[in-house]
Amino acid sequence: MSHSSHQASTPTKHSAGVFDIRMIIGLLLLIYGVILTATGVFGDPAYDKTGGVNANLIAGVALLAVGGFFALWARLRPIIVDESKLPSAPGRPADR
Score class of each variant (00 low, 15 high):
I58H: 08
V61R: 02
F69M: 03
H3R: 04
R22W: 06
D20E: 14
I24Q: 06
M23G: 05
S15E: 15
I31N: 01
V41R: 02
M23W: 15
D44N: 13
V34W: 13
L72Y: 15
S9D: 12
M1I: 05
S5G: 05
A89M: 12
F70E: 10
A46W: 10
L57W: 09
L57I: 01
S4R: 11
A74I: 01
S4C: 08
H14S: 04
L64R: 03
L86Y: 04
A62E: 11
I31F: 13
I25C: 06
V66I: 14
T12K: 06
G67M: 03
V61S: 04
E83N: 13
N56T: 07
A62Q: 05
P87F: 04
S2G: 10
P78K: 00
I80M: 11
S15W: 13
L27H: 00
D20K: 01
G17Y: 14
T10K: 08
G51A: 01
P87N: 02
I25S: 05
I25Q: 06
R22P: 02
S5Y: 11
L76E: 11
K49T: 09
P87W: 07
L57G: 05
A89W: 13
H14E: 15
G67L: 03
G68L: 04
F19A: 08
Q7M: 12
G17D: 15
R96N: 12
Y47H: 09
I25M: 06
N54T: 05
V81H: 09
F69A: 07
G26S: 00
A89H: 11
E83H: 10
A16R: 06
A55V: 11
F19I: 02
A74E: 12
F69I: 02
L64N: 05
L29C: 00
L28F: 15
V41G: 03
P90D: 14
D20I: 05
M23F: 15
N56L: 09
G33T: 03
K85E: 15
G91S: 00
G52C: 02
I58R: 01
L36S: 10
G67N: 04
T37H: 03
V34P: 12
G33W: 12
L29N: 01
L29D: 04
T12L: 10
G26F: 07
A65F: 15
I80G: 06
G91W: 02
D44G: 06
E83R: 06
L57S: 00
A65T: 08
G40N: 02
A55C: 06
L30N: 04
T50P: 08
R75M: 13
A94H: 09
Y32G: 11
R96I: 12
G26R: 00
G68F: 12
I31P: 00
Y32P: 09
K85L: 13
A59H: 04
L57M: 01
T39Q: 13
K85G: 07
G68C: 05
V53Q: 07
T37L: 04
A46C: 12
A8D: 09
K49V: 11
